[in-house]
């Protein structure tokens, strides 16, 4: 029965992002008998990417449900289950498909606690693989997180490391509010970021950013796979004599403003990097908060490096053309420190 289950893990072994997610699901399913997982192809197949591999064998088809292709119903029925006492992990096969469940998310789920004056809360985590740089083209590359950051009642998270992927997902499943989790599919199986995960039951709190690299000349704020672009850019900048601090916000709603402001207080310069389109994207929100709440700290205009205001094209040169890159970050940083 548990032959396909690769958890609990061996001590001291590095694990990738995908395995970390899987561990979170197995552990929470075991700790919470009222938890249900549902999504397209998550049971028999184990998920398009294998995040739920072995879960149905372990917990049965009633708690790990292979759903018809209907994101609206995956979310909507999860809301009903939550209304009747369950905690639900609802998988979007690709986060791009979340648009098919948009109404159920923003009107039914996000507002439930509000419109019932607190009588009802909806512990549902909608999670799915997201992000570009993999040749996924228009409908398998999106970062559409700003839609949901703009819908009060939803928490929005995006892990960039295996330990955060596990710890944030566990926090999400215990939070009691609807959470949208952007998992970076390009990071799922990247061995160079694999980590040894804590043996004990641990969580990573929402609203607490991580400083990935300390620096004093300029702050690079990011999340998801762009964090690695920022770290790489910081390494290159170091060679050029510029010390960049890299902040991974980890959760968008709630946002840890304090860590960002503390960093900007030190560097007085900031670049925000994300791979969503620029207009009304979350980079704009971060820049806006810095500009309105920490204006006096700035010695240079804050900069956004985002995807162009285009869809994500398919073939590589076109895709890379529209997306943030290490080179774009380095160039913008050099310009900003000289401002």
């Amino acid at each position: 029965m548990s032959a396909t289950v690769d958890v609990p893990a061996q001590v001291g072994v590095k694990k990738n992002y995908l395995t970390a997610l899987k561990e979170a699901l197995f552990e929470e399913m075991s700790l919470n008998p009222h938890m249900i997982c549902q999504g397209e192809d998550i049971g028999i197949l184990g998920g398009a990417f294998g995040v739920t591999e072995g879960l149905q064998a372990q917990y049965g088809a009633q708690r790990v449900i292979d759903m018809p292709i209907s994101e609206a119903c995956i979310v909507g029925s999860a809301v009903g289950m939550a209304l009747n006492g369950k905690t639900v992990m609802a998988e979007m096969q690709f986060i791009d498909f979340i648009s098919c469940g948009f109404d159920q998310i923003v009107n039914m789920m996000a507002t439930y606690h509000y419109r019932t004056a607190g009588e009802v809360n909806i512990p549902v985590v909608v999670r799915g693989p997201a992000g570009a740089y993999g040749g996924g083209a228009l409908y398998h590359s999106q970062m559409n997180e700003s839609w949901f950051c703009n819908s009060p009642g939803l928490k929005v998270i995006c892990a960039s490391t295996p330990s955060d992927a596990k710890g944030l997902l566990k926090t999400a499943l215990r939070d009691g509010n609807p959470v949208i989790s952007y998992e970076i599919k390009e990071l799922y199986r990247r061995n160079d970021i694999a980590e040894v995960l804590p043996d004990e039951d641990y969580t990573v709190p929402f609203g607490k950013a991580a400083i990935r690299k300390a620096g004093k000349d300029i702050t690079l704020v990011s999340y998801g796979q762009n964090v690695y672009h920022c770290i790489q850019a910081a390494d290159e900048l170091e060679k050029l004599g510029v010390s960049a601090e890299v902040i991974d916000i980890r959760t968008l709603v709630p946002l840890d403003e304090e860590t960002i402001f503390n960093s900007v207080a030190k560097t007085n310069r900031v670049i925000v990097v994300n791979e969503a389109p620029m207009t009304c994207g979350f980079a704009g929100e971060i820049v806006s908060r810095i500009s309105t709440k920490a204006f006096d700290l700035l010695d240079a205009p804050p900069v956004r490096i985002t995807r162009l205001d285009t869809p994500v094209p398919w073939v590589k040169p076109l895709e890379l053309f529209v997306l943030p890159s290490v080179e774009k970050i380095v160039q913008a940083a050099l310009k900003t420190v000289k401002y």
């Binding site: 249900i36 009633q62 708690r63 609206a72 119903c73 979310v75 909507g76 029925s77 999860a78 809301v79 009903g80 289950m81 939550a82 209304l83 009747n84 006492g85 369950k86 109404d103 159920q104 009107n107 039914m108």
Partner: peptide, 15 residues
């Protein structure tokens, strides 16, 4: 919009 919620409610109840 509440039909999926209704389905979820009774799914949980059956469980």
């Amino acid at each position: 919009g509440t039909i999926p919620a209704a389905a979820g409610v009774v799914y949980a109840d059956r469980l």
